[in-house]
Protein backbone atom coordinates (compact mmCIF):
# COMPACT_ATOMS: atom_id res chain seq x y z
CA UNK A 1 0.00 0.00 0.00
CA UNK A 2 2.75 2.45 0.95
CA UNK A 3 4.69 1.66 -2.25
CA UNK A 4 1.55 2.27 -4.25
CA UNK A 5 0.99 5.61 -2.55
CA UNK A 6 4.60 6.69 -3.02
CA UNK A 7 4.40 5.76 -6.70
CA UNK A 8 1.23 7.77 -6.98
CA UNK A 9 2.98 10.79 -5.45
CA UNK A 10 5.88 10.38 -7.87
CA UNK A 11 3.65 10.01 -10.92
CA UNK A 12 1.47 12.98 -10.07
CA UNK A 13 4.56 15.07 -9.40
CA UNK A 14 5.87 14.17 -12.86
CA UNK A 15 2.58 15.38 -14.34
CA UNK A 16 2.81 18.59 -12.32
CA UNK A 17 -0.41 17.96 -10.39
CA UNK A 18 0.49 20.16 -7.44
CA UNK A 19 -2.78 19.99 -5.55
CA UNK A 20 -3.00 16.20 -5.92
CA UNK A 21 0.61 15.81 -4.77
CA UNK A 22 -0.10 17.90 -1.69
CA UNK A 23 -3.15 15.81 -0.86
CA UNK A 24 -1.31 12.52 -1.40
CA UNK A 25 1.63 13.61 0.74
CA UNK A 26 -0.79 14.54 3.51
CA UNK A 27 -2.46 11.17 3.10
CA UNK A 28 0.89 9.42 3.35
CA UNK A 29 1.69 11.37 6.52
CA UNK A 30 -1.72 10.52 7.97
CA UNK A 31 -1.11 6.86 7.23
CA UNK A 32 2.03 7.05 9.32
CA UNK A 33 4.70 6.85 6.60
CA UNK A 34 8.12 8.17 7.56
CA UNK A 35 8.40 11.77 6.20
CA UNK A 36 11.93 11.07 5.01
CA UNK A 37 10.68 8.08 3.02
CA UNK A 38 7.84 10.16 1.53
CA UNK A 39 10.39 12.80 0.55
CA UNK A 40 12.91 10.41 -1.00
CA UNK A 41 10.74 7.69 -2.49
CA UNK A 42 7.80 9.86 -3.46
CA UNK A 43 8.84 13.42 -4.24
CA UNK A 44 12.56 13.20 -5.01
CA UNK A 45 12.19 10.03 -7.05
CA UNK A 46 9.58 11.84 -9.17
CA UNK A 47 11.96 14.75 -9.71
CA UNK A 48 14.70 12.28 -10.61
CA UNK A 49 12.57 10.95 -13.44
CA UNK A 50 11.87 14.50 -14.63
CA UNK A 51 15.58 15.35 -14.45
CA UNK A 52 16.55 12.35 -16.56
CA UNK A 53 13.82 13.10 -19.10
CA UNK A 54 14.93 16.74 -19.26
CA UNK A 55 18.49 15.66 -20.02
CA UNK A 56 17.19 13.39 -22.78
CA UNK A 57 14.94 16.12 -24.29
CA UNK A 58 11.87 14.07 -23.43
CA UNK A 59 10.45 16.89 -21.33
CA UNK A 60 11.09 20.63 -21.55
CA UNK A 61 11.23 23.66 -19.26
CA UNK A 62 7.45 23.87 -18.61
CA UNK A 63 7.28 20.26 -17.47
CA UNK A 64 10.24 20.81 -15.12
CA UNK A 65 8.67 23.94 -13.68
CA UNK A 66 5.29 22.40 -12.99
CA UNK A 67 6.88 19.28 -11.51
CA UNK A 68 9.01 21.45 -9.25
CA UNK A 69 5.96 23.43 -8.21
CA UNK A 70 4.25 20.16 -7.29
CA UNK A 71 7.32 19.04 -5.37
CA UNK A 72 7.37 22.28 -3.40
CA UNK A 73 3.72 21.79 -2.45
CA UNK A 74 4.55 18.33 -1.15
CA UNK A 75 7.69 19.48 0.62
CA UNK A 76 5.63 22.21 2.29
CA UNK A 77 3.64 19.49 4.07
CA UNK A 78 6.77 17.59 5.08
CA UNK A 79 9.06 20.43 6.13
CA UNK A 80 7.99 20.78 9.77
CA UNK A 81 7.98 17.00 10.18
CA UNK A 82 11.44 16.63 8.66
CA UNK A 83 12.79 19.38 10.91
CA UNK A 84 11.22 17.73 13.93
CA UNK A 85 12.78 14.41 13.02
CA UNK A 86 16.18 16.05 12.53
CA UNK A 87 16.45 14.95 8.89
CA UNK A 88 19.27 16.85 7.26
CA UNK A 89 19.76 17.73 3.62
CA UNK A 90 22.38 15.82 1.67
CA UNK A 91 24.35 19.02 1.19
CA UNK A 92 24.13 22.76 0.91
CA UNK A 93 24.59 24.92 -2.17
CA UNK A 94 24.63 28.67 -2.56
CA UNK A 95 23.54 29.68 -6.01
CA UNK A 96 23.23 32.96 -7.87
CA UNK A 97 23.52 34.80 -11.15
CA UNK A 98 26.81 36.70 -11.21
CA UNK A 99 27.32 40.41 -10.77
CA UNK A 100 26.05 42.55 -13.64
CA UNK A 101 23.61 39.91 -14.83
CA UNK A 102 19.92 39.82 -13.97
CA UNK A 103 18.95 36.70 -15.89
CA UNK A 104 17.61 34.02 -13.62
CA UNK A 105 15.68 31.41 -15.59
CA UNK A 106 18.66 29.07 -15.88
CA UNK A 107 19.68 29.68 -12.30
CA UNK A 108 16.16 28.94 -11.09
CA UNK A 109 16.00 25.72 -13.08
CA UNK A 110 19.25 24.54 -11.50
CA UNK A 111 17.93 25.51 -8.08
CA UNK A 112 14.79 23.42 -8.64
CA UNK A 113 16.84 20.44 -9.76
CA UNK A 114 19.17 20.76 -6.77
CA UNK A 115 16.18 20.79 -4.45
CA UNK A 116 14.84 17.83 -6.37
CA UNK A 117 17.96 15.95 -5.31
CA UNK A 118 17.35 16.76 -1.67
CA UNK A 119 20.02 19.45 -1.39
CA UNK A 120 19.48 22.62 0.61
CA UNK A 121 19.79 25.69 -1.57
CA UNK A 122 20.64 29.23 -0.53
CA UNK A 123 19.36 31.34 -3.40
CA UNK A 124 21.34 34.57 -3.61
CA UNK A 125 19.29 35.85 -6.52
CA UNK A 126 20.79 37.83 -9.38
CA UNK A 127 23.63 40.36 -9.68
CA UNK A 128 25.60 38.57 -6.96
CA UNK A 129 29.11 39.82 -6.20
CA UNK A 130 32.04 37.39 -5.81
CA UNK A 131 32.36 38.47 -2.16
CA UNK A 132 28.72 37.54 -1.48
CA UNK A 133 29.15 34.09 -3.00
CA UNK A 134 32.25 33.39 -0.92
CA UNK A 135 31.02 34.94 2.32
CA UNK A 136 27.73 33.04 2.09
CA UNK A 137 29.57 29.77 1.53
CA UNK A 138 31.63 30.47 4.67
CA UNK A 139 28.76 31.72 6.85
CA UNK A 140 26.33 29.00 5.86
CA UNK A 141 28.75 26.09 5.50
CA UNK A 142 27.91 25.49 1.86
CA UNK A 143 29.77 22.71 0.10
CA UNK A 144 29.08 24.20 -3.31
CA UNK A 145 29.03 27.63 -4.90
CA UNK A 146 27.00 27.57 -8.12
CA UNK A 147 27.38 30.54 -10.48
CA UNK A 148 25.19 31.29 -13.47
CA UNK A 149 25.60 33.83 -16.29
CA UNK A 150 23.74 34.48 -19.49
CA UNK A 151 25.95 37.17 -20.89
CA UNK A 152 29.40 36.92 -22.42
CA UNK A 153 30.05 40.26 -20.76
CA UNK A 154 29.39 38.92 -17.24
CA UNK A 155 30.80 35.39 -17.36
CA UNK A 156 34.21 36.81 -16.42
CA UNK A 157 32.89 37.45 -12.90
CA UNK A 158 33.04 33.69 -12.32
CA UNK A 159 36.82 33.85 -12.40
CA UNK A 160 36.65 36.45 -9.64
CA UNK A 161 34.55 34.05 -7.55
CA UNK A 162 37.25 31.40 -7.90
CA UNK A 163 39.97 33.88 -6.95
CA UNK A 164 38.03 35.16 -3.94
CA UNK A 165 37.42 31.61 -2.75
CA UNK A 166 41.13 30.91 -3.02
CA UNK A 167 41.98 34.11 -1.15
CA UNK A 168 39.50 33.20 1.59
CA UNK A 169 41.18 29.80 2.02
CA UNK A 170 38.05 27.73 1.35
CA UNK A 171 39.02 26.17 -1.95
CA UNK A 172 39.57 22.72 -0.44
CA UNK A 173 36.18 22.77 1.29
CA UNK A 174 34.01 24.25 -1.43
CA UNK A 175 33.42 23.17 -5.01
CA UNK A 176 32.64 25.86 -7.57
CA UNK A 177 30.23 25.02 -10.36
CA UNK A 178 29.58 27.24 -13.37
CA UNK A 179 26.89 27.28 -16.02
CA UNK A 180 24.88 29.39 -18.41
CA UNK A 181 24.57 30.14 -22.08
CA UNK A 182 28.09 31.32 -22.91
CA UNK A 183 29.89 29.02 -20.47
CA UNK A 184 31.53 25.77 -21.50
CA UNK A 185 33.94 23.22 -20.13
CA UNK A 186 36.98 24.97 -21.59
CA UNK A 187 36.02 28.20 -19.83
CA UNK A 188 35.44 26.31 -16.58
CA UNK A 189 38.92 24.80 -16.74
CA UNK A 190 40.49 28.11 -17.75
CA UNK A 191 39.19 29.92 -14.69
CA UNK A 192 39.92 27.04 -12.32
CA UNK A 193 36.32 26.19 -11.40
CA UNK A 194 35.45 22.60 -10.53
CA UNK A 195 32.66 21.76 -12.92
CA UNK A 196 30.66 22.95 -15.88
CA UNK A 197 27.47 21.09 -16.70
CA UNK A 198 25.41 21.63 -19.83
CA UNK A 199 21.97 21.48 -18.26
CA UNK A 200 20.16 21.85 -14.95
CA UNK A 201 19.65 18.15 -14.33
CA UNK A 202 23.33 17.34 -14.92
CA UNK A 203 24.24 20.19 -12.56
CA UNK A 204 22.17 18.58 -9.81
CA UNK A 205 23.80 15.18 -10.43
CA UNK A 206 27.24 16.74 -10.24
CA UNK A 207 26.36 18.66 -7.08
CA UNK A 208 25.29 15.44 -5.35
CA UNK A 209 28.54 13.80 -6.45
CA UNK A 210 30.55 16.70 -5.00
CA UNK A 211 28.63 16.63 -1.73
CA UNK A 212 29.34 12.91 -1.34
CA UNK A 213 33.00 13.48 -2.20
CA UNK A 214 33.35 16.28 0.34
CA UNK A 215 31.46 14.30 2.99
CA UNK A 216 33.93 11.44 2.43
CA UNK A 217 36.83 13.84 2.84
CA UNK A 218 35.55 15.26 6.11
CA UNK A 219 34.46 11.87 7.51
Amino acid sequence: MSTELLNEISENLQRGKAKVVKELVQKAVDEGLDPDVILREGLLSGMDVIGEKFKANEVYVPEVLIAARAMNMGVGVLKPLLAEAGVKAAGKVCIGTVQGDLHDIGKNLVKLMLEGKGLEVVDLGTDVSPDTFVQTAIDQNCQIIACSALLTTTMGVMEEVVKKAEAAGIRDKVKIMVGGAPVDDAFCKKIGADAYTPDAASAADKAVEFCLELAGKSA
Binding site: G100, D101, L102, H103, D104, T126, D127, L151, T153, T154
Partner: peptide, 12 residues
Protein backbone atom coordinates in the same frame (compact mmCIF):
# COMPACT_ATOMS: atom_id res chain seq x y z
CA UNK B 1 10.27 43.79 -14.02
CA UNK B 2 13.05 44.50 -11.57
CA UNK B 3 15.52 47.15 -12.73
CA UNK B 4 18.75 47.45 -10.83
CA UNK B 5 20.83 50.63 -10.86
CA UNK B 6 23.91 50.34 -13.05
CA UNK B 7 22.74 47.26 -14.95
CA UNK B 8 21.66 47.91 -18.50
CA UNK B 9 21.01 44.37 -19.75
CA UNK B 10 17.54 42.79 -19.88
CA UNK B 11 15.80 43.25 -16.52
CA UNK B 12 14.65 40.29 -14.47
Amino acid sequence: ERHKPGITSIPS
